Amino acid sequence: MSVYDRLKALGIELPSVSAPAAAYVPFVRTGNLVFLSGHIAKRDGKPWVGKLGLDTDTATGKLAARAIAIDLLGTLQAAVGGDLNKVERIVKVMSLVNSTGEFTEQHLVTNGCSELLAEVFGADKGAHARSAFGVAQVPMGACVEIELIAQVA
């Protein structure tokens, strides 16, 4: 099953690349690696604001991370010239979770992204190294920000 068959089965339509909010580019390709800049969680086109452990629970954070994964896929598609089937492997995901000092479920929030990547690319290509950090704040008050590195053909 191709990546696009899986996306269709999941009911996912990929967005186009968003314009950067500051002085950076959405992705950089060097050799067979693509580095995607951090994407913040968005809901209805606006930052998905919240702080885990204060006004946002783990399940909601996981949904936000899944939404970021969809945005990341849109950017990755642009980075590989419009064909996600060129992705050989998701190499690394780094997640920044806007959370209180007491919140300790950053890894569960980040699963929202990791699980979707595995569904879309399959267990082999979608499995990746990962870091999940709790941070005091994310740009625009978003609850989660995630960046990604992929190996491509």
Rank of each mutant, 00 (worst) to 15 (best):
A64Q: 08
D5F: 02
L72I: 10
G134C: 12
V138G: 13
D55Y: 04
V91D: 12
T104I: 07
K125M: 10
N85L: 03
S18I: 02
G50P: 07
S37Y: 02
A118E: 15
L33A: 07
K62L: 06
V80G: 10
S16T: 13
A23P: 00
A136W: 02
T104C: 02
H39Y: 01
M1H: 13
N32Q: 12
H128E: 12
A153C: 07
A23M: 06
G11S: 08
C143G: 15
V93I: 15
D71T: 12
V120Q: 07
T110Q: 13
S16M: 08
V138Y: 08
V135A: 06
S131I: 03
T104A: 14
G61P: 14
A41Y: 04
G101N: 11
F35V: 11
H107M: 06
Q106C: 06
A123I: 01
E88R: 09
E119F: 02
R66Q: 11
L54F: 06
V28D: 04
G126Q: 08
L72H: 04
A129E: 12
V49N: 02
L36I: 05
K42P: 00
I68F: 05
D44T: 01
M140C: 14
A23S: 13
V28G: 01
R66H: 05
K42L: 03
H107Y: 05
A19I: 07
I68R: 00
A142Y: 12
R6Q: 09
E145F: 00
V93L: 14
I146A: 15
E105M: 05
I90A: 04
A41R: 04
I90T: 02
V152H: 11
V93C: 03
G53M: 01
K92G: 03
R89L: 05
I90S: 08
W48S: 09
F133N: 11
A69H: 04
A142D: 15
E102F: 05
A118M: 14
A59L: 13
L96W: 10
E102H: 08
V97S: 00
L73K: 12
R6A: 09
A136L: 13
L54Y: 06
L84C: 00
A22W: 08
A9L: 14
V135K: 02
D83V: 07
S18Y: 01
V17A: 06
G74R: 10
